[in-house]
């Protein structure tokens, strides 16, 4: 089977533009507790006021350095964490405050997650049958045992595993095989959206390619929408249709993949891209200069005032220390949160 990463499909997807998931002003603050009575003395602002839309059928990549809040965003929007503030619209319905019972009915089946660590994401005490039965039984998809077993075998086949895996325990498999089992679990309920949080980061490079191709095949076959979270720019570039760049809990830039990688606008995106060796060469053959960021990554518990990036930005202006720039559309489908740029319609 061959996989083609054509450009055409991307453009087609963008003409449809049916929004399946939309988040508005999403915040997730973790309280920092101290002392005997565990008083809250501050907050880690892991996700700080993020708004974005995910189109049906697309792959939205989320990149950013480790600790910038990517996982927290994914886990909050799938309601593993309670949002501190903001709304999450899934197919037009706000699910951000639904109680767990309603979530199970309307939401859980339609959005699933693939995790990072193939060694921790499968329960060591459950056989592959039990692990894959969990989603099917929880949502009572079938009546008879044979139907369940049938479906489990089908799932294993879809992800490229032999049916003999069914009675084995996770520790009997390699990392790549386990990741396939995790993928089988994620697609078991026929979800519309899958959040892949560093889904290939823990794997060898050769295995990464296999898993990414599997994900692409599944996307075509089942019309999946992906939110693909990774700190690895080359992986994100390879799989995404659009890409969002995060820094300290905020989105700094959001654009169609090629626009972002060929012409990053935000100083942070430029620095991030320049640090990746194979992205040094620009389209026109010029070597992109390596931009070194000054200073350290500030703590998300006390982010800088104004633009959170101003402490490390070479283009910082006095204004930047006071006002956090909005994420605004500066070119068609190219959003940047930076005072250097004026909105398209301003």
């Amino acid at each position: 089977m061959t996989v083609n990463t054509g450009h055409q499909a991307v453009l087609e997807k963008h003409t449809e533009q049916e929004v399946i998931l939309k988040i508005e002003n999403l915040k997730k603050y973790f309280p920092i507790k101290a002392g005997v009575i565990q008083r809250t003395i501050g907050y880690v602002k892991a996700v700080d006021d993020i708004s974005l839309e995910v189109n049906k059928g697309e792959t939205l990549g989320i990149v950013g350095e480790s600790g910038c809040g990517k996982s927290t965003m994914g886990r909050t929007l799938i309601r593993l964490y309670e949002p501190t503030e903001g709304s999450i619209y899934f197919k037009g319905k706000d699910i951000s405050t639904l109680p767990e019972r309603e979530l199970k009915r309307y939401f859980r089946r339609q959005i699933q997650m693939i995790f990072q660590d193939p060694y921790a994401s499968l329960n060591p005490r459950r056989t592959i049958r039990k692990t894959l039965l969990d989603p099917l039984v929880t949502h009572k998809l079938y009546d008879k045992t044979e139907e369940y077993d049938q479906r489990i075998k089908e799932l294993l086949e879809i992800v490229g595993l032999d049916a003999s895996a069914i009675n084995r325990y996770p520790h009997e498999f390699s990392g790549g095989q386990r990741q396939r089992i995790g993928i089988a679990r994620a697609i078991a309920l026929n979800p519309d959206v899958i959040i892949a949080d560093e889904a290939v980061s823990a794997l060898d490079v050769s295995i990464q390619a296999q898993i990414i191709n599997l994900l692409k095949d599944l996307q075509n076959e089942f019309q999946l929408t992906y939110i693909f979270i990774s700190h690895d720019l080359s992986v994100v570039r390879h799989i995404s249709d659009r890409v969002a760049v995060m820094y300290l809990g905020k989105i700094m830039e959001l654009a169609v993949r090629d626009d972002l990688f060929d012409d990053p606008l935000h100083p942070y995106s430029q620095a991030l891209l320049s640090a990746v060796p194979e992205m040094e060469i620009e389209e026109n053959g010029q070597k992109r200069e390596r931009i070194l960021l000054k200073g350290d990554l500030p703590s998300p518990s006390s982010p800088p005032s104004g633009c959170v990036f101003h402490t490390r930005c070479s283009a910082a202006m006095p204004h930047c220390m006071e006002v956090m720039p909005e994420l605004k559309e500066v070119k068609k489908n190219h959003f940047v949160a930076c005072h250097l740029f004026k909105g398209k319609n301003e």
Binding site: T2, Q177, H238
Partner: peptide
Amino acid sequence: MPLLKENETVEINNHPII
């Protein structure tokens, strides 16, 4: 660590596993 480049096609074995 080059992954797959644009428009590159990759053979994936249908039963690589087990």
